[in-house]
Design a protein around this nucleic acid. Structure first.
Lengths: 207, 207
DNA sequence: CGCTTGACAAGACTAGCAGTCTCGGCAACC
DNA sequence: GGTTGCCGAGACTGCTAGTCTTGTCAAGCG
């Protein structure tokens, strides 16, 4: 995008590959591992950068050299774990079955012992950190899109009313999920997933 | 509860009514007004106790003499306003109509210009302040109970399935509400209220 | 080998905020 | 006029995010 700039070639990464000491990958991993470990048994209490650096046996500046803010580290640590949990949704041909499976998977993944308190902590931090909130939103967007497509398939098959508001249904799923997940006053179990899927399909079927 | 304790009478408020200077009601009101005013145009950014005290023309210690924490002040200021907004729900005899009205009222009340950012700020603070979170929960409990009773009336009239999970329906309403209210990515308008009420009644009607 | 570059650990430092403490003053009632 | 307790002002502690400094160490280059 900068071919018109004669200095671009000089600044391009290939022009002068690297000099000086190389990045320490062990430190990089140690930071992510420390962050995830601290998040995992933090149970909602904030995790400090000092604690992460100390646990990783690393200087604070090394953390800030590779991440712009505390939130970025936390989210990176979380996605590092969550990426392994993403699974494609099966297409059984029944909206209600697909939806129930999607919701149940979401509930289960969030409540895995290693993930749960990490996720809770990050969301709580995001409530006060606009930058982290934005990162979170792109993080959740993929899941929202997947659900939206699942619903669109069902609507095309005639299992939902043509005028159904898919965005609203998506928000009903994630609204309930976050509400119960963060407050913890009621279960996010298979029964809840089943009932939620039933309500949403029955309440929006072709009239 | 302490009649067996001989010191109870001495410690009872009537034993020694009061000595010393009286509480300054003007300062009390000035603090609440300052808090509400700052909350109203804070748009999510935290409100500091220093700012409240300075705006109210009051010493910080005066704030902490009457409220135990920052969260308590904020919530007190908020409820001071919200109490005037509570209205009884009409019982039209139709669950769907009652539910639609309840949801729409909730949406509207939360989005009143003076309330909206105040509520957003308090909830964001509550994410990091367990004490405030607890206060918030008793604050919202009244509204949740009202909705639950509205649903129970409908179920008794046979408008909902006998096995319907009313707690889940309540959480679906407030889950969606908070989700959209806090993220602000989609509207909380009359159309959304209408569709939500329709989905919930249709999706849980007698089978 | 010696030089330059840049990552590294350690930790001092700044800035902002919640909540506490101290002080001198003032109002109410004895 | 003395005691009690509220008041405004502001210093102070403790905690945390993020920056800056210092001295060191590793990687390539000539």
């Amino acid at each position: 995008m900068s071919e018109t700039d004669p200095r671009a070639a000089e600044q391009a990464p290939s022009a002068r590959p690297h000099t000086g000491r190389r990045r320490n990958e062990a430190a990089h991993r140690a930071i992510l591992d420390a962050a995830l470990h601290l998040l995992a048994d933090s149970d909602g209490t904030p995790v400090t950068i000092d604690a992460i650096a100390r646990t990783a046996g690393v200087g604070k500046q090394t953390v800030y050299r590779w991440w712009p803010s505390k939130g970025a580290v936390l989210l990176d640590a979380l996605t590092d774990r969550a990426d392994r949990d993403v699974s494609d949704q099966p297409d059984t041909g029944s909206l209600r079955t697909d939806l129930r499976a999607f919701i149940e998977t979401t509930f289960d993944a969030a409540q895995r012992s290693t993930t749960a308190s990490a996720l809770r902590t990050v969301v709580r931090e995001a409530a006060r950190d606009p930058h982290l909130a934005e990162l979170m939103q792109t993080f959740t967007a993929t899941r929202r899109t997947a659900l939206h497509e699942l619903l669109a398939r069902g609507r095309e098959r005639g299992e939902l009313d043509g005028g159904a508001d898919l965005d609203l249904i998506v928000d009903q799923v994630y609204g309930l999920f976050w509400y119960r997940f963060l407050l913890g006053h009621a279960p996010l179990d298979a029964a809840a997933a089943e009932r939620l899927a039933a309500t949403l399909t029955e309440g929006n079927r072709v009239s």
